[in-house]
Amino acid sequence: MASRRRMLLKVIILGDSGVGKTSLMNQYVNRKFSNQYKATIGADFLTKEVQFEDRLFTLQIWDTAGQERFQSLGVAFYRGADCCVLVYDVNVKKSFDNLNNWREEFLIQASPSDPENFPFVVLGNKVDVDGGNSRVVSEKKARAWCASKGNIPYFETSAKEGFNVDAAFECIAKNALKNEPEEEVYLPDTIDVGSGQQQRSSSGCEC
């Protein structure tokens, strides 16, 4: 028997449209890459099993659409996330500037219990493009921003070449796990017949 149960981690991927969220996920889950851009509608859901420190995890990856018209889906999608991955395109300055908005929007909508320590991971994607010559956001700048937001782990990735993708997701799993709260003892009340519990339940006013 496995000594510890399997865990399921809900991972949300956010970022401007076209930064390569779906490609990163495809590279990670299916080891595939396509140059064809295909906009995500709403969200895509993928599952990946990973083993980490002798434990088996299932990553439930929510690949969301970057377009603004899908922003209203936030509350519905973000609830109960274990980790949030922020992705930008190192060749597009705007996508980096928007990281702040994505992060804040997520914290507002998901309202995690401890926003200060909620696990984020930032990925600077498309480092392969044009041999790095079209790059406009420096690694230094990105790292500085991550440091200012509570030391968010940072990875430079290329979904196309599969560069750093596994390392990034391993960190994502690790971080999601770190945030797992101590399980409390599950101890519901016991019925107390003397104090009129029956009355209450039989009159049906608990609904």
Binding site: P188, T190, I191, Q197, S201
Partner: peptide, 11 residues
């Protein structure tokens, strides 16, 4: 727990 009797507490 008997859900129709009292869904909140154990017997």
């Amino acid at each position: 727990c008997l859900p129709r009797y009292n869904p909140m507490a154990f017997l």
